[in-house]
C-alpha cells in the first residue's frame, strides 16, 4: 500500500480524473472530498463490504430454494 502524508487543504490525484481532497481533520475524523467522473460509484468501505457480502450470500441460493424460471423466461421482461 502506498502511504502519503497530507495536510488539510492538500490533495491527491488518482490518474488524471480523480481528486481526493483532504479537507479538514477534527479530532480523530478526516473530512475527505472526492472528485471523480460521475460514472464512478463511490462507497464508504464498510457499506460496500456489507453489500458485497449480501450479494455473495444471495448468489449462493440454490435453484430449488426459489421459484424456478419458466421455460421461456428469457423471452420475457
Amino acid at each position: 500500500m502506498l502511504i502519503i502524508t497530507r495536510r488539510p487543504g492538500e490533495r491527491i490525484m488518482l490518474g488524471d480524473d480523480i481528486t481526493i481532497h483532504v479537507m479538514e481533520i477534527v479530532g480523530n475524523s478526516a473530512r475527505v472530498g472526492i472528485e471523480a467522473p460521475k460514472s464512478l460509484p463511490v462507497y464508504r468501505e464498510e457499506i460496500w463490504a456489507a453489500v458485497k457480502e449480501e450479494n455473495e450470500a444471495s448468489a449462493r441460493a440454490e435453484a430449488d430454494s426459489m421459484p424456478r424460471p419458466a421455460p421461456d423466461a428469457g423471452a420475457r421482461v
Binding site: P41, Y43, W48, A49, V51, K52, E53, N55, E56, A59, M66, P67, R68, P69, A70, A73, G74, R76, V77
Partner: peptide, 23 residues
Amino acid sequence: GLIGLGGSRYALLANDEGAAIVW
C-alpha cells in the same frame, strides 16, 4: 456490475407462477 460481484449483463427470469421473487 453488481457491488462486489461484477458482471455487466444480466437478465430477469420470470416464472410461471407469477411469483414475486425472480432470478
